[in-house]
Design a protein around this nucleic acid. Structure first.
Lengths: 123, 123
DNA sequence: TAGTTTCATAACCATATGGTGATGATGCCT
DNA sequence: AGGCATCATCACCATATGGTTATGAAACTA
C-alpha cells in the first residue's frame, strides 16, 4: 500500500499544481457542477477543461455520474485528506498550530476564491 | 499578491508531485544535508538530483548556502505552510478534524519514511 | 602542483502537459 | 426526423519534465 499511496500523492499534487484545476476544485467544493458550468469562468476551450477534468479524475479528486447528456462532477475528499496528511508530517517542523492555519486560511481564501476566472495570462 | 500566491502554489504542488522530491523534503526535515548526502539513497544520477533540487529551490522549498565545495540544503517552511493552508480550505468539506489527521499521519509516515529509496521503478 | 571531491551545466532523448480546432457521439426537445 | 446542447476524442503543436552521459568549475588535500 506504500507504493500505491505514493502514486496517488503524485497524481494528487500534480493535479493541484495547475491554477485552473485548483479553481475547479474550489468550485466543486461549493457543489456538483457540469462540464459547461465548470468551463464557463475560463477563457480556454472546452476540450482543455475536459483534459483538466480527466487529470482530476485520474487523481481521484473528481468522480462523474451520468445525467442525460450532462456529466455532473463531484469533488472527492480522500485525496485532499491524504495530501493534507502528508503535509501534516511537517507541521512540527514549521511549528505552526492548526489553529493558526485558520488565519492563513482567511487570507488565502480571499485570494483564491477571487481567482477562478483568470483574467490575465495564467497557466 | 493573489497571482503571486497562485504561482507559488503552482510551483510548490508541482515540486511535491514527485516521489524523489518528497523523499528529499522528508530527509531535509530531519536536518540540512549536502547534495551527495541527499543523492545517496537513490539509484539515479547526481545531475538528476541537482535538477530535483533546482525544482525545489524554484518553489522556495529549499535554500542553499555555500560551505567550501559543499552546498548544504535547508528546508523552508513557508511553501509547505501555504500549501497546507490552501488544502485547509476544504477541511470542512471533507469533514475531518485536524486532530484526526494525527491518525492518518501515523499511517502515512510509516509508509513514506520507508519509501525514500524507491526500489521499484518509480517516477 | 597535481589529484580528488563536490556540484553544476550542457547536450541529448523520451514522454507528459496544456493548449488549439475539428469532429463525433449521445440524448434532449420540437 | 431534424436540430440543438453537452461532452469526448482526435490530430496536432509547443514547451516542460525526468532521465542520461560527458564535461567543467571550485575548493579542499597531499
Amino acid at each position: 500500500m506504500s507504493t500505491a499511496t505514493a502514486e496517488r500523492l503524485d497524481a494528487t499534487f500534480a493535479a493541484l499544481a495547475d491554477p485552473t484545476r485548483r479553481a475547479i476544485v474550489a468550485r466543486l467544493a461549493a457543489g456538483d457542477a457540469t462540464v459547461t458550468e465548470l468551463a464557463a469562468p475560463f477563457a480556454i476551450s472546452q476540450p482543455a477543461i475536459s483534459k483538466h477534468l480527466k487529470v482530476l479524475e485520474r487523481a481521484g479528486l473528481v468522480t462523474r455520474t451520468r445525467e442525460a447528456q450532462r456529466r455532473p462532477c463531484r469533488l472527492e475528499a480522500a485525496p485532499l485528506r491524504d495530501a493534507t496528511a502528508w503535509l501534516a508530517n511537517y507541521r512540527d517542523y514549521w511549528g505552526e498550530s492548526y489553529a493558526q492555519l485558520d488565519a492563513l486560511l482567511a487570507d488565502l481564501t480571499a485570494d483564491d476564491k477571487a481567482t477562478p476566472p483568470p483574467p490575465d495570462g495564467a497557466s
